[in-house]
Design a protein around this nucleic acid. Sequence first.
DNA 1: TTCTAATTGTGAAATTTACCACAATGAGGT
DNA 2: ACCTCATTGTGGTAAATTTCACAATTAGAA
Lengths: 210, 210
Amino acid sequence: MFEKIPKPVARRLAIYYRVLKEQSKNGAETISSSSLGRMLDLKPSQIRKDLSYFGGFGKRGTGYNVIDLMKSIEKILGIDKRWNVLIIGAGKIGRALANYPGLIQDGFTIKGIVDVSEKKIGKTIDEHLTIEDVAEMEKIIRERKIEIGVLCVPSDVAQKVLNSVIQYGIKGIVNFVPKRLKAPKDVMIEDVQISLSFKALSFRMVNSER
Amino acid sequence: MFEKIPKPVARRLAIYYRVLKEQSKNGAETISSSSLGRMLDLKPSQIRKDLSYFGGFGKRGTGYNVIDLMKSIEKILGIDKRWNVLIIGAGKIGRALANYPGLIQDGFTIKGIVDVSEKKIGKTIDEHLTIEDVAEMEKIIRERKIEIGVLCVPSDVAQKVLNSVIQYGIKGIVNFVPKRLKAPKDVMIEDVQISLSFKALSFRMVNSER
DNA sequence: TTCTAATTGTGAAATTTACCACAATGAGGT
DNA sequence: ACCTCATTGTGGTAAATTTCACAATTAGAA
Ligand SMILES: NC(=O)c1ccc[n+]([C@@H]2O[C@H](COP(=O)([O-])OP(=O)(O)OC[C@H]3O[C@@H](n4cnc5c(N)ncnc54)[C@H](O)[C@@H]3O)[C@@H](O)[C@H]2O)c1
Ligand SMILES: NC(=O)c1ccc[n+]([C@@H]2O[C@H](COP(=O)([O-])OP(=O)(O)OC[C@H]3O[C@@H](n4cnc5c(N)ncnc54)[C@H](O)[C@@H]3O)[C@@H](O)[C@H]2O)c1
């Protein structure tokens, strides 16, 4: 679609998007790369370069139109449409995500949550999502046109569960399991490794002179 | 402490650590950079280079002793000691973290969890942690020698809560709030931005030909 | 209309990070 | 003791990413 985009760019675009959304709520009409940079501790040139991979969104002398840029980033990130999401594993983290407004607001619709545990199946989360049987997963994925699976199962079953999810046609995974999973390369996996952040913090704290 | 360490290295060390722990459970005595690399989809030379910043842990011809390397990485990451952690905000994500075994196993002790909500204060999570009043936070931090705070509060109060936490002497924050927070530079903040991972996945999915 | 101030878009330089290639080393066999 | 094989540690190079610097453009004032 576009030429070669440095990998960190997509992530930063999502950060810009967050700020733009906030600013548009506050009624700002335009924003400059330098004011954005100040808010995010990034160099203005970084921001301009990032945006320039996708086209010229700004106006010289004025900056960027907040709404327009937001819309453009939505397109680039693919969140101008809604994604259908299934949460797999209704444990602590799965249930936390199930009602995370941040996701819903940004284009991800939680279409279901499944588990194996007899005790959990049938229970309702926040009065609008009912935990369903993982045995129904294939049907759920096909009927509700699930595109993204969120893996929140115990480590030792993660690969097995992933394999079936892929078999049912899912092409995108957000993986909360602290384990490197194997998948065909047309299946995108995005790892979220919370405990790595704690260790990275620890490292910085004991090496804080540098 | 050490010379100039590339920033991605600490994060990778934490990944190596995870695998080493798993391997040591499986009874492996040694591991080579190439087998580690295969498991993690990393070039062996990357792994050797990463480790070499901190010294020569391996033995030529044989590889690395799993236990020794694990211990060495623990030291480097600063998780050879236990860190005292306070969770701030007993909402969905705060409560999920409160009993995440991954953290406890890797050197982080959850010493408390606080909230403002009258309804939540006094309630017990998994029978061993009781939600306390955020008004007691200063006392808790000082008496229990809290070193790391985990921010799980709503976006609009995050900066205010952070400011007080810092005032009470905390030097490390794991921040789950999707917002760039300001802090003196001797306070380390590690951001965990779950919704960015979803957007990054979306981006990859709509641009998957590249 | 012309000038001024602000700000973008972008080649090119600088910096950071990853990768390669190979000498050095240790283990195990003969 | 010597050879062979596997594998590390690392200097040097390549690749990726960030930052700089400045011409180009726009808005608004004089
Ligand atoms: N709790 C956290 O804060 C946290 C943070 C980061 C990562 N994680 C990771 O997320 C995963 C889940 O953690 P958790 O704390 O929610 O654990 P949990 O034990 O609370 O939840 C796991 C859930 O998965 C269900 N499950 C088991 N096998 C299944 C299967 N085959 N199909 C569907 N569901 C199945 C279980 O019944 C359970 O409800 C773990 O791998 C954990 O390491 C957890
Ligand atoms: N739920 C998720 O999966 C998720 C994922 C990533 C990030 N987050 C972020 O984490 C934060 C919390 O999210 P949540 O889903 O747990 O929300 P939540 O509403 O369930 O929890 C927030 C908690 O903070 C408490 N609180 C409010 N003001 C406080 C204060 N001054 N001091 C102490 N506690 C206070 C509230 O009483 C509530 O219990 C939000 O910023 C959210 O964006 C949530």
